[in-house]
Amino acid sequence: MMAEEIIPAVQINNLTKIFPVPFRKEKVIAVEDLSLRVEAGEVYGLIGPNGSGKSTTMKVLLGLISATSGSSAIFGLSSSETASRGSVGFLPENPYFYKYLTGAETLSFYGKLCGLSRRKIKERTSELLSLVDLENARDRRLGGYSKGMLQRIGLAQALVGDPRLVVLDEPTAGVDPAGSRKIRDLIIEFKQRGISVILSSHLLEQVQEVCDKVGIIFQGKLVKEGKLEELIEIESQTEIILEHADPKILDQINKLVQASEETRLLRSGKPKTTLERLFLKETRAESEDVRKDA
């Protein structure tokens, strides 16, 4: 009863988007009968291969293109209304900004578009530049920014209006692992502040750590959706990880397993760290060394 009254951050119902091909009869179905719902304060990951319809869905949600059928709404306002974008921050894939503006000017420009006051813009600019580690590049023109820096200024731009929903299209594409980690940390921070996030990715691993809910999209259809843990846990298996394990104890465990009728030991050995974690650990250690030397 109460659940129906709660207005979700994002509500997409039976969305279908068909692109007509000019001068031809055939049509391209980009998204087909897709429904999804992002609750307020939730982080939603949309995953799927390239061309599966993730970007199209986001574009419809943000009013950049219109749906062929079905509806989409942000905080209960239809995407066709400009007001629905009043509290949205969007980071497009491979963002590209006016390269003649400096970092600070870029944020101030987007701040003005959000209707912020001049004082507020000043505050937000400094705040966001330090958040995305671009204080040093504040007065440099965007033409001289690296790809990672552009991604970061794009993120800052998305946040300038203090949005309650953040839409990120492939936020970590082409960004080095440190940058990815930073973005993940930010997403976690958004979540803590009650900001809803919807992000798309074709790299499954990135999504794992931050998403409350994941939808898998393939050929325009949402094929699976649910809580992350529920989706990935293998119900029949259990994992035990021990530290400083004595060979005797291991032997005992082995015996116990063999004694059991159903239980089988599938694998044992040293757990492997992921390559990414290793990379992060090493680069961090190195940079700390450099700092110590200095």
Binding site: F19, P20, V21, P22, V28, A30, P49, N50, G51, S52, Q219
Partner: peptide, 19 residues
């Protein structure tokens, strides 16, 4: 195969600006 074709068609479509 199908996906690639679709992707290509899509990019043409978005460029030709369906109004």
């Amino acid at each position: 195969m199908d996906i690639i074709r679709k992707e290509r068609a899509l990019s043409i479509v978005t460029k030709l600006k369906s109004y």
